[in-house]
Nucleic acid binder design. Structure first.
Lengths: 196, 196
DNA sequence: TATCTTTGTAAGCAATTACTTACAAGCATG
DNA sequence: CATGCTTGTAAGTAATTGCTTACAAAGATA
């Protein structure tokens, strides 16, 4: 195989990981399989990542940077809280349906090998999301539009249930999901809950 | 080891599976580990179950029979829809916090080895739950108490998000969860959504 | 050109996996 | 007691796992 920089190889490896998870399941994510999928030797993989675990952690870091990053931008924008909440949900739905390998990875890794490092990373992603949603809701309450007597934390938790159960649907139905007006319908319900 | 009937051994094995999953993670659920935990030989396990996969499937079958069974009883009772919905949620929360091994098993197995049989079983559990919730909501609408213009399917989906994200919380926080008034708070939100 | 670092690979490592085999002993039935 | 079925186990099996080692070649730097 022709030489390539570590940066390029790392990207190839991470992409192949998601590919394998989605098509064959996490169980078949061996370094042997991984190397074959890319067309490189198994030893090469360990040139670019110290351990297999580090590949997973690097992917989770990408999620933090890219996905949570874009959500943060939405939550902190100057738009109406209602619009922000809508954009936030739709962005999440889009990300999950577009990145099914990641979805399954996040879903199953933590409970699978009970690794504290992994759990901490996922916890952070989960908490970040809850905080951002809470912020939007608090902004809506502060502007006098939404009911100030509701439990913000509970709404955030309920809200988080949307992407998470969408996640399960995606896994169980092999990625086939008709998200047509899914986002819109959910927003209607959430808004009714938030209304004064 | 003294002789025991297959029925007793099967129960012991299944209990040990949940035990291992909860304490050591699914990754450490090997037949070797399993045998050690019970104090029997590895060969003995294969006396009582044809394959390791069959142990998992048998556990999932138990969930179907016991858990879904009790939820069905609640959904079909003669009580007020509001009371039924409350009982249903609280029963779910209780089951999940009491059976953390099962929680993690259901969570990760399907996405882990991409097995169609497993997926079908989990799909059925998930769909059963959605149907039962939908039934309660429809009863409430039929009685004239709840808003008939809402999308029942969407409410059911949103509702399902509650146990599922509770699930994630449980896995990520090693089973520590303060479910004090969790059920009550969620019910308040759901009821506001259903109100005319 | 000579040297050094980086990237590649084939072969092999010990450990672990789910499962089998051969055989012993318990237990009910004749 | 004898026969047959069930339950137990120790010691295997072949396959797979994550990772290492020894060495070759490419590319950068001097």
């Amino acid at each position: 195989m022709t030489r390539q920089s570590t940066e390029i190889r790392q990207e190839q490896i991470k992409q192949a990981v998601l590919d394998i998870i989605y098509t064959d399941g996490l169980k078949n994510l061996s370094t042997r399989n991984l190397a074959n999928r890319i067309g490189m030797s198994e030893g090469s993989i360990f040139r670019h990542f110290p351990t297999k675990q580090d590949i997973i952690l690097s992917i989770i870091q990408d999620v933090q940077d890219e996905f949570i990053g874009s959500l943060r931008a939405i939550a902190n924008s100057k738009l109406e809280p209602e619009k922000r909440l809508n954009d936030y949900l739709c962005e999440t739905v889009k990300y999950l349906t577009d990145n099914k390998g990641i979805t399954m990875l996040l879903f199953s890794e933590a409970s699978h090998n009970n690794d504290e490092m992994l759990k901490m990373n996922l916890q952070q992603i989960f908490n970040n999301q809850k905080m951002l949603v809470s912020k939007i809701i608090l902004d809506g309450i502060a502007s006098g539009k939404w009911d100030e007597s509701i439990s913000v934390e509970s709404v955030a938790m309920l809200y988080m249930g949307i992407p998470v159960s969408l996640n399960i649907d995606l896994v169980l139905h092999n990625g086939e999901f008709y998200a047509d007006n899914y986002c819109t319908k959910m927003m209607q319900l959430i808004l009714k809950m938030l209304k004064k």
